[in-house]
């Protein structure tokens, strides 16, 4: 029996009258790769933000890695994010005035202390050893996303969240990024939750859940 890293019970998030996430019960066992699919507005990003400690639910309980996220203060959530979670966004969000290696060091700095050598080797690991000193403007979409991956895993998170990480990439880059994630997961053994509306991308996971209008409608286990 593998322990659940994420446990939700009646998890709800509403914005005023609009209910983005209807009461949801979800268990994610440690080490699983979970794909979350649905149309835009189906509540999949909301789920990811809640699990990543970026947003607070309006009702229900939410435990991630044994921690009750509802009980944490704002700074407590920040600590949870930097120590427990790595996040990759659809739009490759890097600090525009910092170089690739400095963007990775930023995550180290917020976490504890920066260590340039370690940041460099992380970038080499994602195949960007030759672009350390380039700023986001000088990097392609796929390269930027790989910097974001390096930054997301630099603090050895237990949980890696991807919000349509390949949404803006061409097919070749998508495959490259997914391959990289798979490789890294094999080494670091983190849990992955990936939000996508691309069936091919979802197929990289162990299990796919389908959300529609904030409700879990279907669940599918991959056989690999």
């Amino acid at each position: 029996m593998v322990e659940s890293i994420i446990e939700t019970n009646g998890l709800t998030r509403s914005y005023g009258d609009i209910c983005a996430l209807k009461p949801l019960d979800l268990q994610v066992p440690e080490g699983e790769w979970l794909s979350v699919m649905g149309h835009s507005g189906s509540g999949k990003s909301t789920l990811m933000n809640l699990v990543g400690g970026l947003d607070r639910p309006t009702a229900g309980s939410l435990r991630v890695g044994g921690e009750d996220l509802l009980a944490l203060s704002e700074d407590g959530l920040a600590r949870f994010r930097r120590e427990f979670v790595g996040i990759i966004f659809q739009q490759h969000h890097m600090v525009p005035y910092l170089t690739a290696v400095e963007n990775v060091m930023l995550a180290q700095y917020f976490h504890s202390v920066p260590d340039e050598a370690e940041a460099r080797s992380a970038l080499e690991r994602v195949g960007l050893g030759h672009r350390l000193k380039n700023r986001p403007g000088e990097l392609s979409g796929g390269e930027q996303q790989r910097v974001c991956i390096a930054r997301a895993i630099i603090n050895s998170p237990k949980l890696l969240l991807g919000d349509e990480p390949t949404g803006n990439l061409d097919h070749k880059s998508t495959v490259m990024v997914m391959e990289l994630l798979k490789e890294l997961r094999a080494e670091e053994r983190f849990t992955v939750i990936m939000v996508t509306h691309n069936q091919d991308v979802a197929a990289w996971g162990d299990r796919t859940i389908y959300l529609d209008d904030g409700v879990l409608v279907r669940e599918e286990r991959m056989k690999s």
């Binding site: 120590e83 180290q108 976490h111 504890s112 202390v113 260590d115 630099i154 050895s156």
Partner: peptide
């Protein structure tokens, strides 16, 4: 070996 853990110890010491 793990960078994050190493850095956390350093940060606590600092």
């Amino acid at each position: 070996r793990q960078g994050a853990q190493r850095r956390k110890i350093l940060a606590a010491a600092i």
